[in-house]
Design a protein around this nucleic acid. Structure first.
Length: 210
DNA sequence: GACCAGGCACATC
DNA sequence: GATGTGCATGGT
């Protein structure tokens, strides 16, 4: 398994090159994006984030104080905007109360403890929590998403219904637990997924992993 | 017009 | 524990 995971990474990296993730200009923006991208294409998330930036609202206090109607209006292009308004507010409440809206304070917490805290926030599940840990706070945690599952199962490394934690363990146990590697690996899987491995995508047979 | 997207919570069995 | 459903916009 070590060799297979390493080989997949090498092929993807050789084919696509470095992905430069996460596409955001601050840790806080990463977190907002992580919540907004739940089951949503990234281009739509970018529009919502642009709305917030244009209003100079992309900071914890301003977002937390904004009324929900207005916030939902900004989030609209990202879809599920009512739900996402609530989820974002839930995170902001936690972030401001627990860490005074300060990334460095939150980052100082022990990774596994912080992960558990994040999972208690309503609207933050495993993938969102891990995206925050890896891409906003640079913790060596592997992010498992729909593409990861689909790609690995199509290539026979996991069963399609395998638990999140089990898939995550595959990476943790068989690769160097490096922020740089985990960052790039997951980003490459998403790139491959978008280009070749969407649901019902006919390009699947010309996948560069073959 | 159908199908899909970088999930999650909740209901029901 | 497994399975089904609502949430919603915008691109292909």
């Amino acid at each position: 398994m070590k060799k297979r995971l390493a080989a997949i990474y090498d092929k993807l990296y050789a084919h696509f090159g470095p992905q430069g993730w996460w596409p955001a200009s601050s840790a806080f923006e990463v977190i907002v994006g992580a919540i907004l991208t739940q089951n949503t294409s990234w281009v739509n998330v970018e529009k919502a984030v642009a709305n917030l930036k244009k209003d100079k609202a992309l900071n914890p206090r301003r977002l937390l104080n904004m009324n929900n109607k207005r916030l939902a209006g900004f989030l609209r292009p990202a879809g599920y905007y009512n739900i996402k308004t609530k989820r974002l507010k839930e995170f902001l409440k936690f972030f401001c109360q627990e860490y005074r809206g300060n990334i460095a304070r939150m980052s100082a917490k022990k990774t596994q403890d912080l992960r558990l805290q994040l999972l208690k926030v309503h609207g933050v599940g495993q993938e969102t929590a891990d995206s925050i840990l890896l891409y906003a706070l640079n913790k060596p945690v592997f992010v498992v998403d729909a593409y990861t599952r689909r790609i690995l199962s199509r290539h026979g490394l996991v069963r399609p219904d395998m638990e999140y934690a089990e898939i995550q363990n595959l990476f943790r146990k068989n690769l160097k637990n490096s922020v740089k590697l985990f960052n790039e690996y997951h980003a490459l899987l998403v790139k491959l997924g978008k280009d070749y491995c969407r649901k019902n995508n006919p390009k699947c047979q010309v996948c560069p992993l073959k």
